[in-house]
Every structure is written in C-alpha cells, then in structure tokens.
Simulated scan of single mutants.
Amino acid sequence: MIIHIFIINPIAGLKDRSESIRVFLEKKEKMQYLVFDTEENNGEVELVTKMQRLFSDDNVRYYICGGSGTFFNSLSSIDDLSKVEIAHFPCGATNDFIKIFGKSRKYFYNLDNLVRGDSVPLDYLHGTDCKSAIFISAGLTARIENVVGKMKFLLGLSSVFTYSLAFIFTFLFNPCYEYLVEIDGEDYSGEYGMIYMGNAIVIGGQYCPFPKASQTDGLMEIMLLKKINNMRLLKFIQYFKHGEMDKMQDSVIYRKAKKISFARKDGKEILLNCDGDMITRSKFECEVRNKEMNFVVPRGAELLNQ
C-alpha cells in the first residue's frame, strides 16, 4: 500500500489551500495519508528529510502543494527520486513545471484527479547538492530572480509584471565573467553573461526559450550567452521569451547534452537560479538523470514533447 504524504506551503500563491486540502482528505476513508504544513521558510526541506527516515522501507508518494520553489526544495531533499513517487499540486505564482503538459495541465488542479493518477518516469537535473525539474542558470536570469525575490509582494498581483520590472532593474547592470566550462567532455571556456541548463519548457511564468525541450530523452538544453551590448540584450530577451534562439546564433552557444561543469575563472562564488530559488556554489556540476523521477500525472494530462 502507498503512503500518501501531503506537504503544504500555506503561503504559496494567493490563497492558503491547507484547509481545503484537509477537507478533501477527510473524505478519503480508505486512503493512508499524512498531511503537514510548512511552518517556516523552506520548511519542506525538514519535513521531507524526516519522512524519508520514518518511511525508508515503504512505498511513498509525496504531494508537494506549493509553487516551483517548494517543489525544488522538496526534490532536492529526497535522496533517491527513483525510489519514491512525487506529485505537484500547483498552488504557487507560476507552477512552471506542469506547463510541459500544455493545456492538459488543467487536470493537475483537480486534487481528486491527481490522487488517482499514475507515475510516469521523467528526466530531472541533478546538480551539485540540488535537484531541479525546470532549469538552473547562472548570470542574467539568476540576477533577475534575485531582484524578484526582493519584490515578492508584487507576485500576487502579476508574475509577468514583476519579472518584467526585475529585468528593467537588471538590464542596466549585466556583467559578464570568465568561466571554465566543460560540456560532455568538451571545453567551452569563455566570457559569458549567462549559463542556462533547461529541462522543462517555461521559466519565470512567461519565458519559453526551448519550446521543444523533452523530459524523456536524457538530454538537457544548454545555452551559453556571449558578451553582448545592451541593445542586443534587449533583442535576446525577446527571442529567449518566445523560443526564437535561432535568431541569436552569433551571440549564443547552444548544445543538447548530458553533463556540464563550470566555475568562475577568478574563483569567486556563482549565484544560481534553480527553479526560482537562489543558491551559491564555488563550482557547479549538473547532469541529466534519465527517467529517474517518478512524476505523478493525473488522468487526461499528456506531455507536449515525448
């Protein structure tokens, strides 16, 4: 029998869903479940860690009830994703990962439908002390997310407006750094304004840089943004948003790959944006774990790109 563990972030999004989720679960008499609210920032980390110790020999399905950040922290706290099932009940501002299901993502918002769903093996990004379902980046998008974090009070009004405003602030200061980069054993060291590793389709609620990205092919989308002037950067953002990176071939290096490692040549820490959460590392390695995340898909939902 599966033990269903619900971890709710009550401050995710515009509305606290903890009460409605509990009301739903009380009607599931034959379902073996536990339900917890996160009591502090990143509280899901402690909860998932404890649940792993308590149910190390059981079949467990985690329901992460929150946004992209809550989902990222929960993934990163699970030792071996291939041994559990994980579901995302979207309660956040953007909920970007489920957009890989296109319009059929609407089925994720029906909790009864989600509980009845089956798990499907999908890829994820296994980074240095973290696990990401959507994307990881250094440089431009990391700085934008860092600014967004200081304007969280605006996310409830409009995530699109907040991210657009954050870009304006970031646009005026977009430094490039010398990186030591290796992709699948090949040297790509150079001066870059952004290093992007993608698994999903949409990031930041509205940006869709690689609309044909697959979550089952064992490869990630890697893009290195070369040093460009501000006018060119404005065009880049538009192409990045609408998945038209082919129009920036002279300014970016694009690869589909299994593994990347990089560090700043000056040895300083790297600020990284991981599914909307910020971390720092002195050196970062990332590889695709092919079909090792057992992701729960509600009935009716279908991947856009197989």
Rank of each mutant, 00 (worst) to 15 (best):
D58T: 15
G193D: 00
R105A: 08
Y188A: 00
R255M: 11
F55L: 02
F236H: 01
M1E: 09
K27C: 14
I7C: 00
F240S: 05
V23F: 12
V48K: 07
S77I: 08
G67H: 02
E19S: 12
R53G: 15
I21A: 11
L34W: 02
T94F: 05
Y192C: 06
T141V: 14
D118M: 09
I100A: 08
E186L: 10
V23T: 13
V288M: 06
I78C: 05
M194C: 10
M278Q: 03
N305L: 08
R255V: 11
N146T: 12
F295S: 04
V120S: 13
K247D: 00
S119R: 00
A257D: 13
E85M: 09
E191W: 15
G193E: 06
S282Q: 14
I222D: 02
N146F: 08
Y188N: 04
V148D: 07
T162Q: 00
G69M: 06
E29R: 15
E186D: 04
C130K: 04
L155M: 05
N290V: 11
E44A: 11
D246G: 04
Q238V: 12
F295D: 06
L154Y: 07
P209R: 09
L225R: 02
F167N: 09
R281F: 07
I100S: 04
C208W: 10
N146R: 13
R116F: 13
I260N: 10
C130F: 00
Y163S: 03
T170L: 00
E39N: 13
C91I: 01
I237P: 02
Y239H: 14
F97C: 03
I98D: 00
T49L: 10
E302Q: 15
D217M: 14
K268C: 00
K150D: 05
F101M: 15
F108M: 03
I136G: 08
A301C: 08
E287G: 08
K28Q: 14
L219E: 04
F210D: 12
L272Q: 07
E221K: 14
K83G: 07
A166W: 01
P121E: 06
D129E: 13
M31G: 07
V60E: 03
L180R: 12
Q306K: 09
D37I: 12
